[in-house]
Each structure stands twice: as structure tokens, then as C-alpha cells.
């Protein structure tokens, strides 16, 4: 073997990154944790400060003007509003750690009870919608990416762009309205509102999912076309792999790795959309709780709702990051992440 000896030099050169891999992993995880922790602290501070940012006296505002000063003072003491700011913040964080969100000013009900009841509904809807977004966008995008690869089928591409562009441009509340008009009022296939059984979830989940799904499908199609042009796909074809295997093992992971950052943003935006959609469909989640709480100056409820929705977004982002790294071994080397 003439070449073995020369190769050892190249071997040590390539071993360096292998040795540094675990170190880079640690740095990556730390960077991500720091970012998430930063987001969490920001969320805590901002929800805590909310009550202090309100012009005038929030307690007065929420209790009304014809309440005796003693009641107001008692209420302030109950909310620790008579203590220094940092002490209040400490109490706030400590209570949250024990899952204590205070009591609703409007109903007197403990807020954690309210959150517990409604979180399931919101998470259920959001998870269903996110699953729909991923399935629809990946299937449509990869399918049309395959069909239109290499500049083939220009008319199909145009049609796809037109349809997906239209669905993306229609805001989710209009999508929801149209779905109700057609599938609830028109065909009576699904209930128009409420949360009774899995059928009642179909329309709100679709309304929430369709705009981001078609937006992502465009991204996925473009990425699929790009991936199909890559040399390693030609290598896989040279190995005569069946088309399905080629797509599942070679195309899909690369497409996913390329589209996931955008997908993370779309999924985060979906949490915002859920507030509107829940109200349209009278879905008993966080989104239907926060609106009357805002109009009724029910600050503990608003605080808890914002905190929970923010946490969901942080969680989705963290999940997307994990999947990204699991998919792409080179990710840990990128400093931007």
C-alpha cells in the first residue's frame, strides 16, 4: 500500500475537530441555555414590572373608586405592594416557583387553577396546529420541490406559488371565518365553536395552521429544489437507492435542517395567532382568558397568561434548536447559535 503512510499526516489533522467536538458541544449547550435563561429572566421581569408600569394605582383601578381606603391598603399588603421593589420581585419569583400566581381580582379564583384548566386546551390546540403545519408544509413543499426541480414544470411552480402565496396572505382570523362559513354553517361537518370532542378541534387547528403551513411549504419547496441539486444526492442516486428511501433518508433531513430556523419563527407566531383563533372559536384556553382580564384590569390573570404564552414560545424555540442540532452535526460549530 503506497499511500497509507502519507495518510497518517492527514489523519491527525482530521482528528483535531473530533477531539474538540465535545468541547464545542458544551459551548453550544451553554450558549443556548444562556439565551433561554435570558429570555426567561426578561419574561419574569417584564411581567413583574407590568403592575408597576400601569399609570395610577393598579389596585384602585381594579377595585373601582367606591372602595374604602382600608380595603385598598389590605389589598396592597396582600399583593406585597407596600414592600421595596426588589423584595416584591423576590416574592414574585418565589411564588411562581411554587406555582402560585395569586388570585383573580375579578372572580377571586386562584389564578393557578384558571391556568391549569385552560393550559391543556391551549396546548392541545397549539400542538395539533404545529403538527399540521409541519406535516402540510413538508409534504407539500417536498412534493412540489421534486416536481419542479431543475426548472421543470414552470407552470406547476407558478400555480403552487400563487396558491401558497394567497393562503399565506390571508390572516388567520379570516381563514377561521371562512372555514366556519364553509364547513360549519355550510356543510355542518364540524362544530363552529366550543371544545367538545376531537371534532371541535379541527376547524380552529386548521385556521391556525394553514397560513404558516403554506408559508413554510414555500420555504420547503425552495430548499428541496436546492438539496436535489446537491452532489451528495447524485451520489445517493449513483448508489441506485429507491426514490422513497432517497427522499426519507437523504433529502428530508437536509431540507429539514435548512427550513427549521424559519419553522421555529412560524411556530412561535402560531402561539400569538392562537389568542385570536381561540376567541373566534370560543376555545376555552389562555387566549380567551387574557382578553377579559385585560379589559377588566385583572392584572394577576394577565401576568400569568403572558408568562405562560411566553414560556410556550421559549419551549418551542428550545425544541427547534435541539432538533436542529440532532439533525446537523455541524451546528455546534456555528457561533451564531
Amino acid at each position: 500500500m503506497t499511500s497509507t503512510t502519507i495518510d497518517t499526516a492527514a489523519g491527525t489533522e482530521a482528528d483535531a475537530p473530533a477531539a474538540a467536538r465535545s468541547g464545542r458541544w458544551r459551548a453550544f449547550v451553554l450558549r443556548r441555555l444562556a439565551t433561554i435563561a435570558g429570555g426567561l429572566v426578561f419574561l419574569l421581569v417584564i411581567t413583574f414590572l407590568m403592575i408597576h408600569l400601569v399609570p395610577g394605582d393598579p389596585v384602585r383601578a381594579s377595585l373601582g373608586l367606591n372602595v374604602s381606603p382600608e380595603v385598598v391598603a389590605a389589598r396592597r399588603a396582600q399583593l406585597h405592594l407596600d414592600r421595596p421593589l426588589w423584595v416584591q420581585f423576590w416574592y414574585y419569583v418565589r411564588d411562581l416557583a411554587h406555582f402560585k400566581f395569586g388570585t383573580s381580582i375579578q372572580t377571586g379564583e386562584p389564578v393557578d387553577q384558571l391556568i391549569r384548566n385552560r393550559l391543556t386546551a391551549t396546548v392541545q390546540l397549539a400542538v395539533a396546529a404545529m403538527a399540521l403545519v409541519l406535516v402540510i408544509s413538508l409534504l407539500l413543499g417536498m412534493c412540489f420541490g421534486w416536481l419542479t426541480a431543475g426548472g421543470r414544470r414552470r407552470r406547476t411552480e407558478l400555480g403552487f406559488n400563487l396558491v401558497s402565496g394567497t393562503v399565506t396572505a390571508v390572516p388567520d382570523f379570516l381563514t377561521g371565518t371562512l372555514l366556519v362559513v364553509v364547513f360549519a354553517l355550510g356543510t355542518h361537518w364540524f362544530p363552529a365553536s366550543g371544545r367538545q370532542g376531537p371534532q371541535s378541534m379541527v376547524l380552529p387547528a386548521l385556521a391556525l395552521a394553514l397560513p404558516p403551513a403554506f408559508f413554510l411549504a414555500r420555504v420547503v419547496r425552495i430548499e428541496t429544489v436546492k438539496v436535489l441539486e446537491q452532489d451528495y444526492i447524485r451520489t445517493a442516486k449513483a448508489n441506485q437507492l429507491p426514490t422513497v428511501r432517497l427522499f426519507v433518508r437523504h433529502v428530508a433531513p437536509n431540507v429539514l435542517a435548512q427550513s427549521l430556523t424559519v419553522a421555529g419563527l412560524a411556530l412561535g407566531g402560531l402561539v400569538g395567532g392562537s389568542v385570536v383563533i381561540e376567541n373566534i372559536f370560543a376555545w376555552p384556553g389562555i387566549g380567551t382568558a387574557i382578553v377579559p382580564a385585560i379589559t377588566g384590569h385583572d392584572y394577576p390573570v394577565v401576568q400569568a397568561c403572558i408568562l405562560v404564552l411566553g414560556l410556550i414560545i421559549l419551549l418551542v424555540n428550545a425544541l427547534v434548536d435541539v432538533v436542529l442540532v440532532a439533525l446537523n452535526p455541524r451546528m455546534t460549530a456555528l457561533k451564531e447559535y
Partner: peptide, 15 residues
């Protein structure tokens, strides 16, 4: 970027 604008708006409107 991941935080939807409508949530920020809801927060400010609460204030």
C-alpha cells in the same frame, strides 16, 4: 423575533 407582535401588544395594552 420568535415573540409574536400581538403578544407584545397585549402586554402593552394591559399596561
Amino acid at each position: 423575533l420568535a415573540v409574536p407582535g400581538i403578544l407584545v401588544a397585549l402586554f402593552l395594552i394591559a399596561v
